[in-house]
Amino acid sequence: MAEEESYWVKREKENIKKEQMKDEEVAEKLREIIENAQREILKEIDVFYSRYAENNNITPAEAKKRVSEFDVQSFEKTAARYVEEKNFSDKANEELYTYNTKMRVSRQELLMMYLNAHLVAMADEQVQTFQDYLEQAGINEVARQAGILDVNMTITTSTLESLVGASFYEATWSERIWDDMEGLREELDVIINNAIVRGVHPDRGVSNLRERFDVTTYEARRLLITETARVQTGAQQLSYEALTEDNDEAEYEFIAVIDDDTTETCEDLNGEIFKVKDMMPGVNASPMHPFCRSSSALRLGDWRTNFFAEREGKYSL
């Protein structure tokens, strides 16, 4: 039995490395989405100051006079173009509408409406990217478990949606994306206000803005890797439970990749055995922390042969 378990543990660690490569590919896509939004926002700010600032400085009185001449119809066309070209989700359209109706459509607020359109597009594209990737991660993990355990097993659409959209530590991944966008928008508002009202040179704000976008990129990558681990663990748990529903003694092994990046938490849990019925992400299963790379493997003890012989057929989660 020891040789069999060693084989499955080794196989699981090899799969962890493969999944890391997939995660990084999607993380790169998220980086491109965020950097594109940053470029568009910096372009909007540059155009704004090129048209309305003198000698790289602007007084409150001059700003009020010049920005009041800003073309409202131009913004309306920009917003309409975004809605048409980006195929916004209901959430994104709601964000645009709610924010726009709160603004006075004058002076710096109009510039912020331009910038907000770029931010909403950025967040919405991130959400769509996450949704597609996490759903596929859940499907792939169920299929992988079916191959490991040599059974036919599928996951229903409703179960998959519940798994992907589940809250983790009191928030869903989509809520975290929109919350980060709102935080970025608030910081943008401060930067624009400082430049127009207080006469702070815009280059100082641009530097801060680049740093804030770097934070958004980092948090998007962290969220992707952590949430992918959660979905994959959830798919494992569903598979284990479906296959061992009549066996309260069924167990799984916690598997961590041991290297210089391994946290003390996962290193301590590596090789530990837990009951399938007690499996809980964040407690005794991945993700135990942000960027968690750990996984699990069902313990294939002496009960395996008879158990599966009695349960031939298709399993539906």
Rank of each mutant, 00 (worst) to 15 (best):
Arg210Gly: 00
Asp179Phe: 06
Ser207His: 07
Gly199Tyr: 04
Arg198Asp: 12
Leu188Trp: 00
Arg221Ser: 15
Ser174Asp: 15
Met181Pro: 01
Arg198Ala: 14
Glu187Ala: 11
Tyr218Leu: 10
Asp180Pro: 00
Asn208Phe: 08
Ile177Asp: 01
Ile196Tyr: 05
Ala220His: 08
Asn208Glu: 14
Pro202Asn: 04
Ala220Asn: 09
Leu188Val: 02
Glu175Thr: 12
Glu219Asp: 15
Val200Ser: 04
Asn193Trp: 10
Ile192Thr: 07
Glu187Cys: 00
Ile196Arg: 02
Val206Trp: 02
Asn193Val: 03
Asn193Leu: 06
Tyr218Val: 03
Asp180Ser: 13
Arg204Gln: 14
Val215Ile: 15
Arg198Gln: 12
Pro202Tyr: 12
Thr217Gln: 14
Ile191Phe: 08
Tyr218Pro: 01
Asp180Met: 10
Pro202Met: 05
Leu209Asn: 02
Asp189Trp: 04
Glu211Gln: 13
Asp203Ile: 13
Glu211Tyr: 11
Asp179His: 11
Glu211Ser: 14
Pro202His: 07
Val190Ile: 13
Ile191Pro: 01
Glu187Met: 09
Gly205Ile: 08
Gly183Ala: 06
Asp214Gln: 12
Ser207Cys: 02
Glu211Gly: 06
Arg212Ala: 13
Arg185Cys: 00
Ser207Leu: 14
Ile191Lys: 02
Thr216Met: 13
Glu219Ile: 07
Gly199Pro: 07
Gly199Asp: 06
Asp189Gly: 04
His201Arg: 11
Tyr218Gln: 12
Glu175Gly: 10
Ala220Asp: 06
His201Gly: 05
Val200His: 02
Val197Arg: 05
Gly205Lys: 07
Leu184Gln: 12
Arg212Thr: 10
Asp179Pro: 00
Asp179Thr: 13
Val197Tyr: 11
His201Ser: 11
Met181Tyr: 05
Asn208Arg: 15
Phe213Gly: 05
Asp214Pro: 01
Arg185His: 10
Asp179Gln: 14
Val190Glu: 11
Glu187Ser: 12
Leu188Glu: 07
Thr217Phe: 02
Ala195Phe: 04
Asn193Lys: 13
Ala195Met: 05
Val190Lys: 14
Arg198Trp: 08
Gly183Thr: 01
Asp179Trp: 06
Arg185Gly: 06
Leu184Trp: 00
Trp178His: 01
Arg204Asp: 12
Glu175Arg: 09
Asn208His: 07
Asn208Gly: 10
Asn194Lys: 12
Leu188Cys: 01
Arg204His: 13
Thr216Leu: 11
Val190Thr: 13
Gly183Ser: 09
Val206Thr: 11
Ser207Trp: 04
Val215Trp: 08
Asp179Tyr: 06
Glu175Ile: 02
Ile177Thr: 04
Phe213Trp: 06
Arg210Leu: 09
Glu175Cys: 05
Arg176Gln: 14
Glu186Asp: 14
Val206Asp: 09
Arg204Met: 13
Ile192Asp: 01
Tyr218Arg: 15
Ser174Leu: 04
Leu184Asn: 03
Arg176Ala: 03
Arg210Cys: 01
Glu182Tyr: 06
Val197Gln: 09
Pro202Lys: 04
Arg204Cys: 01
Tyr218Ser: 09
Asp180Lys: 13
Asn193Glu: 12
Leu188Tyr: 02
Ala220Glu: 05
Phe213Met: 08
Asp179Cys: 00
Phe213Thr: 05
Thr217Lys: 15
Arg176Tyr: 04
Glu175Lys: 10
Gly183Cys: 02
Asp180Thr: 11
Glu186Ala: 15
Val206His: 06
Arg185Ala: 14
Val215Ser: 07
Ala220Leu: 08
